[in-house]
């Protein structure tokens, strides 16, 4: 499993987050202020994407903001 393809897929949903992998758990670290309502709205698609990328679990890190500077992900 690799973080980058999953990050790219999340980017297509305009979910701007770094991905940390621990076994089959993907931890999303939002880049910039997280809009939890957006995460909630996309929750089903995010978990489905995670499964497609081989993750059994996907979690949103709370109170964390990934350092900015990587321009590979779209932001809104």
């Amino acid at each position: 499993m690799s973080a980058q393809p999953f990050r790219d897929a999340l980017g297509a949903l305009a979910v701007d987050a770094d991905v940390e992998i621990r076994d089959r758990l993907a931890i999303l670290r939002p880049r910039g202020a997280v809009d939890a309502r957006r995460i909630a709205a996309e929750r089903g698609r995010i978990t489905a994407l995670a499964a497609e990328h081989g993750f059994t679990h996907v979690a949103l890190e709370l109170g964390a903001v990934a350092p900015e500077g990587d321009a590979t992900l779209p932001r809104d």
Binding site: I27, I46, L60, L62, G63
Partner: peptide, 22 residues
Amino acid sequence: DCAPLHDAVRGAGFERVALDLR
């Protein structure tokens, strides 16, 4: 607002807190 969840679990001794989306 998930901030209270974060603060409560941090207060229990965890450095980082994540909410499982499933």
